[in-house]
């Protein structure tokens, strides 16, 4: 079985990548200055207590020892506990060093599992928006290379790519939510709160889609079989939708795999602006609070997601275009 061998090979490679990522981020977090225990215990805690907590948590062991302990846990599905977040609620610890809630801190995996669906919802809606924006512009640009739809595609994508997501988010929140009161945007209470953040994210993704669409549609339309299709009497719409778009789908899929990390970066900032309770906001807060286990957990999970998405993309691409090799 080709597929099986392909899957095994890619998954093994994936494990290596994820392992490297965890080693990288783990070392990085411990090498850079900034003591998380100081933050957890609060500025007023005596030095002796800080050392005591740190030793108790194993933070004073050599880095390889700490990493081995951590990675053993990860392979058993245990990503550790957050340094600062209590299991009971969203309140943030670190105010006083004798805080009783420290005993029951939230598990990293739980925190990620709670927020990930929100981010996936946001990302999927953004993809839909992005496709709706990019398809007409990109296809038109590809059908008339060098003419005005092509120029239009170039100008629009240059403009879209130049809009900083956080600024666009603020402006749209001000105009659409505050002035016109069309859709709500800050926080999250129901699905309507996803619309504006998803739109901002879509504007960020759209230029890449437009460019890929323009190039691949133009490429396909120059092929022989398109001329033959015309001779066969197919209408223009049939040619575009049956042949050109289907062939343009593979580069689009590949783009999704390559740009995954950009998508995630966008999500991070956009969730921060709109106070949208997803993975991105969790990440920013984790970094601000030096919540090492949480940062590591998020980095590992996103790396794994990156690997998996790229495998799925390759599988889907071969399903669409059987000529492609694994």
């Amino acid at each position: 079985m080709f597929i099986l061998r392909f899957l095994i090979r890619r998954l093994l490679q994936g494990v290596v990548i994820v392992f490297l990522v965890s080693a990288l981020i783990f070392t990085l977090l411990r090498v850079v200055p900034g003591d998380p225990v100081r933050l957890m215990a609060g500025g007023m805690a005596p030095e002796a207590l800080i050392e005591e907590i740190a030793t108790e948590m194993g933070l004073r062991d050599p880095i390889p020892v700490q990493f081995t302990r951590y990675i053993t846990g990860v392979f058993q599905g245990d990503f550790g506990q957050s340094f600062v977040r209590p299991a009971s609620g969203a309140a943030v610890g670190g105010a006083s060093f004798d805080d009783s809630t420290r005993g029951e801190r939230a598990r990293v995996l739980d925190l990620i599992a709670q927020t990930a669906p929100m981010t996936i919802q946001l990302a999927l809606l953004a993809m839909v928006f992005a496709l709706v924006i990019a398809l007409p512009i990109g296809v038109a640009g590809g059908l008339y290379p060098g003419r005005w739809p092509d120029r239009m595609a170039l100008y629009l994508s240059s403009l879209f790519v130049s809009l900083p997501n956080f600024w666009l988010g603020i402006v749209l929140a001000l105009v659409v939510s505050v002035k016109w009161q069309l859709v709500p945007s800050i926080g999250y209470h129901n699905f309507a709160y996803t619309i504006l953040p998803a739109f901002v994210l879509a504007i960020e993704i759209a230029p890449f889609l437009i460019r890929t669409l323009t190039v691949s549609v133009a490429g396909v339309m120059a092929q022989n079989f398109i001329d033959i299709a015309r001779v066969r009497g197919l209408s223009r719409n049939q040619i575009v939708f049956r042949h050109a778009l289907k062939n343009a789908a593979v580069p689009l899929l590949n783009l999704l795999g390559v740009q995954f990390s950009m998508l995630l970066g966008g999500v991070l900032v956009i969730e921060f602006i709109f106070d949208y309770p997803g993975l991105g906001l969790l990440t920013i807060n984790a970094v601000m609070q030096r919540d090492f286990p949480l940062i590591q957990g998020i980095a590992i999970i996103t790396a794994a997601a990156f690997v998996l998405i790229n495998i799925v993309v390759d599988l889907a691409a071969t399903a669409i275009d059987p000529r492609l090799d694994y």
Partner: peptide
């Protein structure tokens, strides 16, 4: 190339804010 893959798998912004967030 494995190093490149690993680096590519960490979203750049997470890496950047992690390093800059904990250092000055």
């Amino acid at each position: 190339m494995r190093l490149t893959d690993a680096q590519l798998a960490i979203p750049m912004i997470i890496l950047a804010i992690t390093i800059l967030g904990v250092s000055r």
